[in-house]
């Protein structure tokens, strides 16, 4: 039983990592840019929701605050691309990496100055409630994380395979220039992708902050999500989620059964090992450029 609960809380954590990873795989797939601030987007999303919900701030109804904060973060992602990244079209990938790292610093400062430097929890209507199916004690927050992540995955799958704009995004990712010639507004698509990934970050943030406390430096969690994305090979949405789950499970298991300190370094060690030995991810087949 104890073991099962360990697994479930690991899965819940893993879903959050997976969602963050999903956010930057989205961006990477569609724009070739890597958002080193995705974890900070998540943190910002959580704080925006805390700002709407918690009674010391605005005290709105939780179920109103969540869609609001998702919208706010969507707008934030869209405007970030429209206002800043769009002007860097054509600069090297390294500059974009550096720029997003710098954005992370700014977001952390902004969140700390606007809300709080102290660990803060999101006040949810389901806080502390538990489900007890067959002797297990499951926090509603943890169950919710798993359910929401599953639903989001399904939604994204349908979005990319069925909708016009989803297909356009895929086209833009596979060949920017050709997509441009086909009349796909590549730059607007980029902004939309950034908006979308802002929204995913908000969801991840809300889920994370409802389960535990969050503070501005929580954004550094994004690096664990890099490990998740690396396991999935950076280009795959389901791979990112699966990678998140693996990292989420490794942490508590290593803490329980491994020597002390291992659980702390495990995600980064995995990231390093994967980059060295399987840079294409553990599920990928290598691709070759045609003609």
């Amino acid at each position: 039983m104890d073991f099962l609960q360990l697994i479930i809380s690991g899965l819940a954590n893993g879903c959050v990592y997976g969602l963050i990873a999903l956010g930057f795989v989205l961006i990477y797939k569609a724009t070739e840019a890597v958002n080193f601030a995705q974890g900070d987007f998540m943190m910002l999303g959580a704080f925006v929701c805390i700002g709407f919900t918690n009674h010391e701030y605005m005290g709105l109804n939780f179920w109103l605050a969540v869609p609001l904060s998702i919208l706010v973060m969507g707008a934030f992602g869209y405007l970030f691309n429209w206002g800043i990244l769009r002007h860097m079209f054509g600069q090297s990938q390294t500059s974009i990496v550096i720029l997003t790292i710098a954005m992370g610093f700014i977001i952390r400062f902004f969140a700390g100055a606007t809300w709080s430097h102290e660990p803060t929890s999101l006040e949810t209507p389901y806080a502390g409630q538990e489900l007890r199916p067959g002797g297990l004690v499951l926090g509603v927050d943890e169950v919710l994380i798993v359910v929401v992540t599953a639903i989001l995955t399904l939604v994204f799958y349908l979005f990319f395979s069925r909708t016009r704009i989803g297909l356009a995004m895929q086209a833009a990712s596979q060949n920017q220039l050709a997509a441009y010639y086909m009349g796909i507004p590549v730059k607007r698509i980029h902004s939309l992708v950034w908006g979308l990934s802002g929204m995913v970050a908000a969801v991840a943030g809300v889920l994370f902050a409802s389960k535990g406390a969050i503070d501005p430096s929580t954004g550094l969690l994004g690096i664990k999500a890099f490990a998740a994305a690396a396991i999935g090979g950076f280009g795959s949405l389901p791979g990112a989620l699966l990678g998140g789950l693996i990292i989420g499970l490794v942490e508590p298991l290593a803490a329980r059964y491994g020597p002390p300190g291992v659980s702390q370094i495990a995600p980064y060690a995995i990231l390093l090992l994967i980059l060295i030995f399987r840079p294409g991810g553990i599920f990928s087949q290598t691709q070759r450029k045609k003609v």
Binding site: Q93, V97, I223, L272
Partner: peptide
């Protein structure tokens, strides 16, 4: 050496992971 065949972003990630692990290795 093992990460040199990787391109820009991957190299950035690998060195990032190394940088985070540094403090733990110093403790070890």
């Amino acid at each position: 050496l093992p990460v040199l065949r990787l391109h820009g972003v991957y190299l950035a990630l690998a060195t990032l992971a190394m940088s985070i692990l540094t403090s733990d290795f110093v403790v070890m």
